[in-house]
Amino acid sequence: MARYILQRFLGMLAVMFVVVTIVFVIVRVAPGDPAAVMLGPDATAQDVATLRARLGLDQPLVVQYVYFLGQLLQGDLGQSIFLDRPVTTALAERAEPTFFLTLFSILIASLIALPIGIYAAYRRGSLFDQAATTAAMLAASIPSFWLGLIFIQFFAVRFGLFPVSGYGGPDAGFLVRLQHLALPALALGVVSSALILRFTRASMLDVLGDDYVRTARSKGMGEFRVVMRHAFKNALIPILTVIGLTAALLVSGAVITETVFGLPGVGNLVVSAVLRRDYPVIQGALLVIAALYVLINFAIDMLYLVVDPRVRY
């Protein structure tokens, strides 16, 4: 087990090293002078030179890379040009809406997909199974931002059940925040449930015909216990994998949805940074999102140890 954990941890470090290197190169190989791009066409040569010195772009590339790594090891992602504050501070201020949006979205997706996928596999070939498969294909083809606009039109504008956009005032309580997150989380959850549903159904179909399931039934065990305790437990590995990947994709893919609903999250911050050419914020956001992606996958690998005893050996 220790070897398994060590391998996964070293793999995580290797992936992050590659990501850090790619992000460093992207800023340096951008067309033109990055400092001039950030400041815009009206900047003077003195302004560009000052910003180049501030960002360390006047140093040799190797020196810049070593300095960049040293900053990261100290938790320093640089200074935002437009916001005039550390990138870590700007990201921390926007982390809460993105975190809860991702959490609620994956919960909604799992609550929709798991029971439907399990029952569809149990009733394979039935009308319910065909309807569930068709609905999953339809949900997978719908853009989340379009579904969000439909939800705004009906549930916010027409019926007034939820706020149209925003995240509440500075002193808003958790229930108010939850009202603002309901529609975007539902839009993302419905779309994300399609992949989880299809993987749940496929994984359950693989185990429902195995010998141990037939043995449990021959012993007179109830169907619910057979399906949930024996079949579902052994089908969890691929299901956990796709849930983890979906959660990681939601962290990085909620940019458009946050913009549509006016949520002050990381995605909205990245969109603003791109429009303002605030490269330090873009660079820092990419690194944080990549780190979250890797950490989520590492956590899923650790869950394998709990779900499947064979992994421990």
Rank of each mutant, 00 (worst) to 15 (best):
V20Y: 08
Y67A: 14
L77P: 00
V191C: 10
A131C: 02
I150C: 09
G244R: 11
G75W: 06
D129V: 09
A216H: 05
L275F: 07
A30K: 13
G56D: 02
A132C: 04
V190W: 11
L149K: 06
F154R: 14
Y4V: 09
D42I: 13
T21L: 15
A120Q: 03
G244C: 05
V311R: 08
V19C: 10
G160S: 08
F82A: 15
A235C: 08
R85F: 09
L73Q: 10
A135K: 03
A109D: 04
I118D: 02
S105P: 00
R229C: 05
D206Q: 13
A202C: 12
T246E: 03
R277P: 00
P280Y: 06
Q71K: 15
D206N: 14
G265H: 13
A135I: 12
V207W: 11
A136W: 02
P264I: 07
R312V: 12
F162C: 06
K233P: 01
N297Y: 08
I22W: 05
F82R: 15
S193K: 14
A231T: 02
M12G: 12
G222V: 10
K233D: 03
V25M: 14
A216E: 02
F199A: 12
T133P: 00
A187Y: 10
G267D: 03
S218E: 03
M16R: 14
L55Q: 06
L149A: 07
V294E: 02
V266I: 14
N234D: 04
F162S: 07
F151N: 08
L91V: 04
A30C: 01
S144G: 04
R8G: 12
L57K: 06
A136D: 03
I22H: 09
V266A: 03
G125K: 03
V271N: 07
S218R: 15
V15S: 15
F155P: 03
I26F: 07
R198V: 04
I196A: 12
R310V: 07
L91H: 09
V288R: 11
L107R: 14
Y122A: 13
P41G: 01
P115N: 15
L83Y: 15
A235L: 09
M302G: 01
L77E: 03
L107G: 14
G75T: 10
A172D: 00
I289W: 02
